[in-house]
């Protein structure tokens, strides 16, 4: 019991018609990074809001370092740090002023505040911009400041709600490396994300949630091994060819092929052999293949296998293209 930093037991929360959390169970061991993975509306943010005392659960129990969030919210607030989806820093204050304000509001000794602020600015590479109003910061800088603000009082438990949503790939990697360092220093971290790559990269264990409950849990290697298959990825020059190819290769696959524009992805059992057969079929049908690849299943494939639908982020929030993220843009299978 003492080893678990964060515990959720059968937590339920309803907003009007929406059952945001539906008996969510979760245990995060102290000093580990735990990824909460799911699409928009899966209940990730609600889970974080319950754990950070911002939302009262309708049912179930939630504890942080053994402190019940409903019974002892003030003590919970003293041991947690929260950095959210939207960088919640005061745009009119400078970076330094923002951190000092956090120092005062978390009741650090007055004498220690200035030093702590300077230390964090240095560490998050914001020293040069420290005395500029934060409204002049770039998106990545604001996120770093937001994260620094959550760390001012050295909380042993940190919640990051979609820390890199909306950031460009460069800023994301920068933030990832900072988060990686935090973890090495013993902070317990619960991270929500809709980026499978992010969970894979940062989190030791991952819970996949959908409809407000955990549908799979384990290390990302364990989750991937639940699908003992390979993914055959084909690309064509035009969508019509891709659609026709999907029909042709589906009989070779373990599940119907997915088409996204000119790309076709299909889960197969025996990668190399199926690849040869698929190419033979396509060639015989006169379809010109633009590119072909076999790859390990990604967490996205796992998500698809578990839920029957893809983790589809909406709008422009999705990360700009890396190959591993291409799969994220998919629609529901037909």
């Amino acid at each position: 019991m003492t080893d678990a930093a964060i515990v959720l037991e059968q937590v339920a929360k309803r907003f009007g018609d929406v059952q945001a959390l539906d008996g969510l169970d979760l245990t995060v061991p102290a000093g580990t990074v735990y990824g909460l993975l799911g699409p928009n509306g899966a209940g990730k943010t609600t889970a974080v809001r319950v754990l950070t005392t911002l939302t009262r659960p309708d049912a179930g129990h939630a504890r942080v370092l053994g402190l019940d969030v409903v019974d002892r919210p003030e003590e919970v607030r003293a041991v947690i740090g929260l950095a959210g989806q939207y960088a919640a820093v005061d745009a009119n204050l400078t970076g330094r002023e923002n951190l000092r304000l956090m120092g005062r509001l978390t009741h650090l000794p007055r004498a220690a505040i200035a030093e702590r602020a300077a230390e964090l600015l240095e560490r998050f590479e914001l020293t040069d911009a420290a005395d500029r109003p934060s409204r002049t910061y770039s998106g990545g800088m604001r996120r770093r400041l937001d994260l620094a603000a959550a760390l001012v009082h050295r909380p042993p438990v940190l919640f990051l709600d979609e820390p890199t949503t909306g950031l460009d790939p460069h800023s994301r990697r920068e933030l990832w490396s900072i988060i990686g360092e935090l973890v090495r220093e013993g902070t317990t971290l619960l991270l929500t994300t809709q980026y499978l790559e992010e969970a894979d990269r940062l989190a030791g264990r991952v819970a996949v949630i959908d409809g407000g409950r955990v549908i799979a849990e384990g290390t990302s290697a364990e989750l991937k091994s639940q699908m003992a298959t390979t993914v055959l990825a084909l690309a064509f020059h035009e969508p019509a060819a891709a659609a026709r190819a999907a029909e042709l290769v589906t009989p070779l696959a373990t599940a119907p092929a997915l088409v996204e524009g000119t790309d076709v992805e299909v889960a197969v059992d025996d990668g190399a052999q199926t690849l040869v057969e698929a190419l033979r079929l396509l060639d015989r049908a006169g379809l010109v293949v633009a590119s072909v690849a076999l790859r390990e299943p990604s967490l996205d494939d796992v998500f698809l296998a578990l839920t029957g639908h893809r983790a589809a982020p909406t709008g422009d929030d999705r990360p700009s293209a890396d190959h591993s993220e291409l799969a994220l843009t998919g629609r529901k299978p037909r």
Binding site: T52, T53, L54, E74, E75, R77, A78, I80, L82, G84, Y86, A87, A88, V89, D90, A91, M102, L105, T106, H107, A149
Partner: peptide, 17 residues
């Protein structure tokens, strides 16, 4: 609107402040 109140509410601050 900027999420600042959310952050304040997650801090160990007096609720009246």
């Amino acid at each position: 609107g900027k999420g600042l109140i959310e952050r304040f509410r997650s801090l160990p601050m007096a609720r009246s402040s």
